[in-house]
Design a protein around this nucleic acid. Structure first.
Lengths: 196, 196
DNA sequence: CGGTCTCTTGACGGAGTTCAAAGCTAGTGG
DNA sequence: CCACTAGCTTTGAACTCCGTCAAGAGACCG
């Protein structure tokens, strides 16, 4: 069980069965139906979440109460409210399932005890954070340099099947445009494709 | 010397003089005049840079060759091309001094040997990356939810004196708008301030 | 089937861009 | 130390892309 998580650790650190089973004992498994909130704004974000199956989003509400999606997470991804989880302050984000999902969650105390017992996990999470920072950096650069159309194509390249899993409403929110604009972008692209 | 760096480490980990002097021996000090490029797109980013004095930016060029600033770094900040530094692939960013600056730089091999000798530094850099991720996350949320005016005010709150150090041209680039738009935003805000 | 939600399409409006010009500032060299 | 120049900032006018509002078609679920 939970082979996905073990495989993910194995990408960056060597792990014995004993180390992994200790590690796994610190995680809380959870199943959640589609449209379940795992975190609401203002709560303390207790868990770092690994997605074994399913799909989640993290979003923030603007002044008018409109949601804006900051992250998606599918199989093999981690998701949390970084700010709240690492500092213990109230969360800015909502975290919600977009599909029926199967998750493994770990709280900070457990994570710290994992680091204390097997320092190699500190290495794994440092590398994870490195990759996370790189991805966020890319995202900022993309939003600064790309038009809506380019940005959409960039997203498709990163997550080829995303339109089959996630509705355009959510994708447009992630891109920072309205569903109508995304629809028009797609219509324009389809027209171009037909011509060539 | 280099008290700033030591103080910065001390925020998160306890450090003996011996540990710090070993650590410091791994850093390369450098002074650079204003408008010096420390990294160009396509190069491998060799160094993680700590700013002792001065001010730097990291920017990316779009299709039309226009620069877009992704990061600023002033005293006590770290700056690098995360992607290139951690993966060894060619950089996407240019890193440039905006003022005469005094820097401490460390390459990856040295950083790894630091981690190997004193694992507490791995902890420091994990925390650093956590904070970095939080800041990037916030930045993405800001760009999704805020108008140009709100975004500018948000930046001013984060870096109160930034307009005294960094020209509006660079600030507008960071915000993802043109210098003309920023100028108009400021004119509007000044008008509001006069009325109240 | 009905109702809700998603996606599309059209008309209009507004925030921000582009282009151009003029005043201002700061860095450079004589 | 002053004068000159290049770059920065501001302002105006026309334009463009995207957002808003509204309506309708299609898909999914109970």
């Amino acid at each position: 069980m939970s082979e996905r998580l073990k495989a993910h650790f194995a990408r960056h650190i060597d792990l014995s069965d004993a180390e992994y089973s200790f590690c796994l004992s610190l995680f809380v498994p959870r199943r959640a139906r589609k449209k379940t909130f795992l975190l609401q704004e203002g709560e303390i974000c207790k868990y770092l979440i690994f997605v074994e199956k399913g799909c989640l989003d993290a979003h923030v509400l603007d002044d008018q109460g409109e949601p804006h999606i900051v992250h998606f997470a599918v199989e093999d991804w981690w998701i949390t409210d970084d700010y709240s989880y690492w500092t213990g302050n109230p969360a800015k984000y909502f975290i919600e399932t977009l599909e029926d999902s199967q998750l493994l969650m770990i709280d900070r105390d457990s994570l710290e005890s994992l680091f204390a017992r097997y320092p190699k996990f500190e290495r794994y999470f440092r590398i994870l954070l490195q990759n996370h920072a790189v991805a966020l950096d890319r995202r900022i650069a993309a939003s600064l340099t790309m038009s809506a159309e380019e940005h959409y194509l960039y997203l498709l390249k990163l997550y080829p099947n995303i339109t089959q899993r996630i509705s355009l409403k959510y994708i447009s929110s992630y891109l920072g445009i309205t569903p109508e604009s995304l629809s028009r972008v797609r219509a324009r692209l389809a027209k171009k494709a037909r011509k060539s």
